Simulated scan of single mutants.
Amino acid sequence: MTTRAAQTVTPTRPTAPHPGAGRRILVGAALAATLPYLTLKAAWVGGSHLGIPEGSILLEPGLFFRVANSVTLAMDACVILLVLVLTRPWGMRIPSWLLTLPVFVATGLLTPIVLGFPSQLLVKALGMGADERVRAASKPFLESWVFVVVYSGFIIQAIALAGLFVPYARKRWGGLWQGAAGRRLPSPTGVVAGAAGGWGGGGGGADR
């Protein structure tokens, strides 16, 4: 009688996607795009009035705006950490549930800017916005260049993070939705759905 030796299959941990030229460009773009906002916030926390016109409510004394600037500075600095998680080998070992909050917060904050700011510029260019006299009579808040610089940086961050998240999720959670044959690579839509399933189910077998 022939005895077959039992074969033990040891699950392997997913490794970070290979840092190709495209991914390196996205990493550089995401990191560079954080600099304008971080620089402005750090300057405001330090007491600078850069980009803040006379009469702005932001110049009123008090602790509130300093705390708010410190919190939002830390939030944008988290983009740097998120970029590292999506590109470094140790990022594959981060528990799935830890990624839920920063990913969904980033999506919720950046998506309206990505969709709304270009539309606002287009409306203004077509002369369909608020009357110039109305804007001139209103109380100033920030110099107009601040919005252009900061929101442009946010848009670049959003595009870069999305481009980095798709290969990360495909590598980490691809087995959850490839199907029985396991031959077809998931689409970007499938990546998002599979990642959501991974978070909801505690990360699946790939995280253990």
Rank of each mutant, 00 (worst) to 15 (best):
residue 135 R to C: 12
residue 145 W to Y: 06
residue 127 G to C: 02
residue 122 L to V: 11
residue 154 F to I: 07
residue 61 P to L: 01
residue 33 A to Q: 12
residue 186 P to R: 04
residue 6 A to E: 15
residue 87 T to C: 01
residue 59 L to Q: 07
residue 16 A to D: 14
residue 167 P to K: 07
residue 65 F to M: 07
residue 153 G to R: 02
residue 128 M to F: 05
residue 94 I to F: 01
residue 108 G to Y: 11
residue 47 G to L: 03
residue 81 L to W: 15
residue 170 R to M: 12
residue 137 A to G: 08
residue 140 P to F: 04
residue 206 A to P: 04
residue 188 P to I: 00
residue 151 Y to T: 09
residue 200 G to N: 10
residue 60 E to P: 04
residue 28 G to C: 12
residue 168 Y to Q: 09
residue 52 I to Q: 00
residue 30 A to G: 04
residue 26 L to R: 06
residue 29 A to H: 06
residue 170 R to D: 14
residue 78 C to N: 10
residue 202 G to H: 05
residue 208 R to V: 01
residue 207 D to N: 04
residue 61 P to E: 06
residue 68 A to L: 05
residue 134 V to Y: 13
residue 109 L to V: 15
residue 171 K to R: 06
residue 136 A to Y: 08
residue 35 L to P: 08
residue 166 V to M: 10
residue 47 G to F: 00
residue 48 S to I: 00
residue 2 T to L: 01
residue 196 A to S: 03
residue 162 A to F: 11
residue 25 I to G: 05
residue 94 I to S: 03
residue 122 L to N: 08
residue 147 F to Q: 06
residue 171 K to Q: 12
residue 182 G to R: 03
residue 24 R to K: 12
residue 60 E to V: 01
residue 36 P to S: 03
residue 24 R to D: 13
residue 127 G to L: 02
residue 56 S to L: 01
residue 156 I to Q: 11
residue 52 I to K: 00
residue 208 R to Q: 12
residue 188 P to H: 11
residue 8 T to G: 06
residue 85 V to N: 04
residue 22 G to I: 14
residue 135 R to N: 12
residue 159 I to W: 13
residue 98 L to S: 06
residue 88 R to G: 07
residue 110 L to P: 05
residue 90 W to H: 04
residue 72 T to C: 02
residue 153 G to W: 08
residue 157 Q to C: 08
